[in-house]
Amino acid sequence: MTRPNDLLLEMQKRMLRIRFFDERASKMVKRGEIPGTVHTSIGQEAQVVGACMALAEGDYMTGNHRSHGHPIGKGAALGPLMAELTGKATGVCGGKGGSMHLADFKVGSLGESGIVGSSIPIATGAALSSKVLGTGRVSLAFFGDGAANQGCLYEAMNLSSVWDLPIVFLCENNQYALSTPAHTVTAGVIAERAAGFAMPGVRVEDGQDVLKVHDAVKTAVDRARAGQGPSLVEVITYRFNEHSEGLKLGTDYRNPAEREAWMKRDPIKMFRAHLIDKGIADAVVLDALEAEVAAEVEAAYQFAEESDYPAASVAFKDLYTEPFGVTQ
């Protein structure tokens, strides 16, 4: 697949946005600037961006608890996302969602989900509305290897297949459901489960390569948009940080040698080398891109810091379209 240079640079930019945003969020958790915890996508940027950028602007997606990367990858503004993590009124959900429930409908992000697998049927419904209304939009459901063992995934895959819905089921297999190695709780190969639902299933073995992810997801998206129905794409990747920031487990459930090997396959460093190697951009341009993104994240942080907390009455808003009967 040939891709214009500006698309390639945009991929690197969005990966950097996720990396710097999550690095800042991690620090903020440690300093107590973010209440609760966050789950970072550090290490998984290629998998997220490769998938998001295979979608068109008006396309839909849903996500999970590892949640910041998806809206960033889809093009959401960083300030309202950061303000949401700090519970501010200017947050993308007005401070009512928080880290695990980001949503930015402006970019087609229909919501992350704190319940593993739970947003998969929602993405399926977005694909249904696209089909019934004839809007041509494609829907993509992000879920992890843990969610691959939730029943709702298979209900959704079956329904999508019999209805020929324009949806991509995107399994972000980072190989661990919190501390549980995927292979100890998962029979067979996730991608091969697609065959049972009469849809294509592919596995991207190197999910650290943004172009390989982009290729596989683009094929699935094009197929969906052409009215040929759903696909399952499984991407093998690795999270560099702990399951959630601040979590300290007594046992080292990940083999240090394994972790070290994966840390060497940093998707951002790999893609930077690729861009230089292919003569698409030089170090000066790429350094400037990194500085630009660092400034964006700093501005998002400042925006969040300077924003006000929501008024107490906001806790009673948005439950229904017209508020009624809520005891304040």
Binding site: L110, P121, I122, A123, G125, W163
Partner: peptide, 26 residues
Amino acid sequence: ARRIRNTPISEEAMVGAAAGAAMTGL
């Protein structure tokens, strides 16, 4: 058949898909 749709016996998918469809215009 576009608007009257038989579903499989899959209540989670049916309810969730209806919610997702409602969030996007149906």
